[in-house]
């Protein structure tokens, strides 16, 4: 019996001894002293994920440390972004990707822990407008066909998109208001699924990312683009909603970039912003982004902050009087 006790004790003794050591505290050194992580709140293989992986390839040359992409998907990004403000360290090593309008819209409509004020933008790499798509063999050939049909059959046109209160949803709402029609929005768990719904005929139409639609362009008809100007690089023939007489602005454009939780020292934010802008402008990332039909739009900290503020105002106006369910 004594032997038995001894063995339990031996096993457990080690625990408090080593735990005592943990009070000694950590040491500070130059920044960045270890690899950075960028958390993407969407699944691996999605557009946000693979673009983030592409634009951070030059990290080792620019920062001296690699950047690792971590995926923490769930609830259209809410799971990951909540964790940014709740559990991320503020030493500048733990960063996250953002999608505007998604996170701003969610912070307005849902009870989220994050909002534009407790997050710090670092740099923006891309702007992916929403485009209106139908499948190759759809009865609609033009935007007008679709609007006319929707007018005659209110609530019968289903439109798929990557989730609730993401760019695609906002574009749908804007089109409904501008054209005076009633559409039926079908939220899916991501851009890939939303695209599947359109291709498989589960939904009659869909709003999706320009980049994804561009790559699938031979299996789709791209009817319109929800931006203030045409995309001259990838889809020069696709009209904007605005030029066809529907007053839809660029609130639904999906901006992607990198941010940090509030509390990271100012000098580190500046340094990171500079480094990330350099990374995003690197030839290697540019070439790969362009091959995938992903429009680049590089913005530094100040420009990104301004874009956030602008979107906040536009979205608050759009959601005025809407219920979050």
């Amino acid at each position: 019996m004594i032997n038995l006790m001894k063995r339990y004790l031996m096993g457990l003794l080690a625990v408090p001894v080593v735990f005592g050591l943990s009070a000694l505290g950590a040491v500070q050194a130059d920044f960045p002293q270890r690899p950075l992580t960028v958390m993407i709140p969407y699944t691996a293989g999605g557009a946000s994920d693979f673009q983030a992986r592409i634009v951070t390839i030059p990290a080792e040359d620019v920062l001296g440390q690699p950047v690792a992409i971590i995926n923490r998907p769930g609830a259209g990004g809410q799971v990951g972004w909540n964790q940014v403000v709740q559990s991320f360290g503020t030493d500048g090593h733990e960063l996250a990707g953002y999608n505007v309008p998604h996170f701003i819209a969610q912070s307005i409509m849902h009870d989220t822990h994050y909002n534009k004020d407790n997050l710090e933008p670092i740099a923006n790499w891309g702007a992916d407008p929403a485009v209106l798509i139908v499948s190759r063999d759809s009865q609609f050939d033009t935007l007008e066909d679709l609007v006319e049909y929707a007018k005659a059959n209110p609530g019968r046109v289903t439109v798929s998109g990557a989730g609730q209160f993401v760019g695609h949803h906002i574009a749908t709402l804007q089109l409904e208001r501008a054209a005076g029609i009633e559409l039926r929005y079908v939220p899916t768990s991501g851009g890939v699924d939303a695209m599947r719904f359109v291709q498989g005929g589960q939904s009659m139409a869909g709003f999706n990312n320009l980049s994804d639609a561009y790559r699938a362009r031979d299996r789709l008809k791209i009817l319109a683009i929800a931006d203030v100007q045409r995309d001259e690089e990838f889809l020069p023939d696709v009209p904007t909603l605005k030029e066809r007489g529907f007053d839809v602005d660029d609130s639904s454009v999906n901006f992607r970039g990198v941010m940090a939780p509030k509390g990271v020292p100012e000098d580190r934010l500046e340094m990171l912003s500079e480094a990330f802008v350099k990374m995003f402008n690197d030839d290697r990332s540019k070439r790969r982004m362009s091959a995938g039909g992903s429009p680049l739009r590089v913005m530094n900290r100040a420009e990104t902050r301004e874009m956030w503020e602008r979107q906040q105002v536009a979205l608050e106006e759009l959601f005025e009087g809407m219920e979050a369910n």
Binding site: N3, K6, R7, M10, G11, L12, V15
Partner: peptide, 13 residues
């Protein structure tokens, strides 16, 4: 690993 091995070894210590 050590704790498990120490506590659950059937042999004498």
């Amino acid at each position: 690993f050590m704790a498990t091995a120490l506590v659950f070894s059937p042999e004498r210590f």
